[in-house]
Amino acid sequence: MTEQSDERRGGAQVGDAPGSDSAGDGGPGGGSTQDGAPGSGSARDGAVSGDNATGDGSAPDDGHGSGSVRNDAPGSRAGRDDGPGSDAGGDGADGSDSASGDSSPGSSSSADMPARELRITVARTGGVAGLRPSWTVTASEPADVDSWLSLVESCPWNGPEPVDADPDRFVYTIRVLQPETERDAQVPERHLGPWRDLIDRVKKASST
């Protein structure tokens, strides 16, 4: 199986920010920036396979849910880009970046990002199957960034830490990366309520 699921769990996409019904979002550099944005390859490669591989599991925790420390992830691509906004288009046009990127969604740091870029990754663990799919969207168009941000801000990032794990139920890890900030949350399926809209939209945008 390849195309269907690749598409379904695919990597970064643009132009599907919440409230935006433009599929193409023809903003300057829009599409190419997305494709080449650090982590877009990881979203694709790591959708399920990379993170589900034994190697990933046995490696030290890559920081999921560990709080908002920037630029500390293993395999950080810091240094590849000269700075916010630089070479975004060119980087994006170079498909090899995706292939050579690491396969962990948490591997790229927010410091690598263009000034207005926003990346949201949703990873799901648990479930009777024990698989670990993830979905990522990246936005750089101001309107898209603002639109996603308002959705992000509507979530209870400082809510209480949920306790009791439910057997075989899903747990979602949500990570929002911006140039200066990183936010992480782990949300059990049972408490999905206020997060559902964000998660559903990321999934949908990631698969279109």
């Binding site: 199986m1 390849t2 699921s5 690749d6 769990r9 959708a47 399920v48 396979s49 990379g50 993170d51 589900n52 591989a53 034994t54 990933d56 599991g57 046995s58 030290p60 925790d61 999921h64 849910g65 560990s66 663990t125 648990g126 479930g127 009777v128 199957a129 024990g130 698989l131 670990r132 794990a165 747990v171 890890t173």
Partner: peptide
């Protein structure tokens, strides 16, 4: 090619330390 390879270890030498999946319960 999409799901990857079944990641389960078969013995303690392959024991997986992870924070995900409630500490790798699956």
């Amino acid at each position: 090619d999409v799901l990857g390879k079944d990641p389960q270890p078969a013995d303690m030498a392959g024991y997986i330390d992870t924070a995900d999946d409630n500490g790798g319960v699956h």
